[in-house]
């Protein structure tokens, strides 16, 4: 895929939950290798937007393209897209009944049809990468939140995705565990992974993001490179939001 062709394209995407309009006319294009941070007040549609990208939510207006593939109800296309789009959730969502290494092997075996031995090797490789190979045979509940989230990142990476979506990956963590997860994310960014991160970690946004997107009321109000976004926000709503989260 060349840089000219965006990896993700959202065209006039809208989404309703009953009468509530969660997304309004979202236009977003992400190229390969780009790192995007999405922020905004709660209920602004950030999570809904990235959940639409792998169709955990169905958009009801507009079009979404992942590479060449448009997201529709076609299951074959959908699973092809989901293989290429890794997702990390706020609450980790590991499979509680499986050991860590089995968590990492399951989708490789079922979806990528990898051999058992190779799946195990890949799993251990990514566990090393998130620096917890020694936890391989434990169950998720026996790990700290920060460790569980690193496992969740490793699990998504095992599928060798083209792009990683992070849905508030540090919001459920104790403060002292946030940096261990952010470290892993910074590493990923350095390796050129395409990333879309919903997060309020503005330090991470400043140092890693190519573009920061601000959402409110289901709309993208502003998007700019971090220096510009933090140094010279254009909209009053953005200024207010930034002053609220940066005042401490």
């Amino acid at each position: 895929m060349t840089n000219a062709q965006p990896l993700i394209q959202m065209k006039s995407v809208g989404k309703h939950f009953g009468d509530f309009q969660a997304l309004k006319d979202i236009n977003l294009s992400v190229s390969k290798g780009e790192r995007i941070v999405v922020c905004g007040p709660s209920g602004s549609g950030k999570s809904t937007m990235i959940r639409c990208i792998n169709r955990l939510e169905r958009h009801d207006e507009g079009q979404i393209f992942i590479g060449e593939i448009e997201l529709t109800d076609d299951l074959k296309d959908l699973n092809a897209v989901r293989r290429e789009v890794g997702m990390v959730f706020q609450s980790f969502n590991l499979f509680p009944h499986m050991t860590i290494v089995k968590n990492l092997m399951l989708a490789q075996r079922l979806v990528r049809k990898t051999s058992k031995q190779e799946a195990h090797e890949v799993a251990m490789h990514y566990l090393e990468r998130v620096k917890i190979p020694e936890q391989a045979n434990k169950y998720p509940i026996q790990l700290s939140g920060g460790q569980q989230q690193r496992v969740a990142i490793a699990r998504a990476l095992c599928m060798k995705p083209e792009v990683m979506l992070f849905d508030e990956p540090t919001s459920a963590l104790d403060p002292e565990m946030i940096h261990e997860v952010l470290d892993v994310m910074v590493d990923l960014a350095k390796d050129g992974m395409t990333m879309i991160c919903v997060t309020h970690e503005m330090g991470f946004a400043r140092s890693v993001a190519d573009r920061v997107i601000f959402m409110d009321g289901g709309e993208i109000l502003e998007q700019a490179p971090p220096e510009e976004f933090f140094g010279n926000p254009q909209r009053a709503r953005t200024k207010l939001f930034l002053s609220q989260i940066l005042q401490h």
Partner: peptide, 25 residues
């Protein structure tokens, strides 16, 4: 629902999710 969602996000089919995630849990 979280682990079920995660399984779908990894590209598993609904039959796979049923037998490998829903039933074992």
């Amino acid at each position: 629902p979280g682990s079920i969602e995660a399984a779908y996000a990894l590209g598993m089919s609904s039959v796979q999710v049923f037998f490998y995630v829903r039933v074992p849990e």
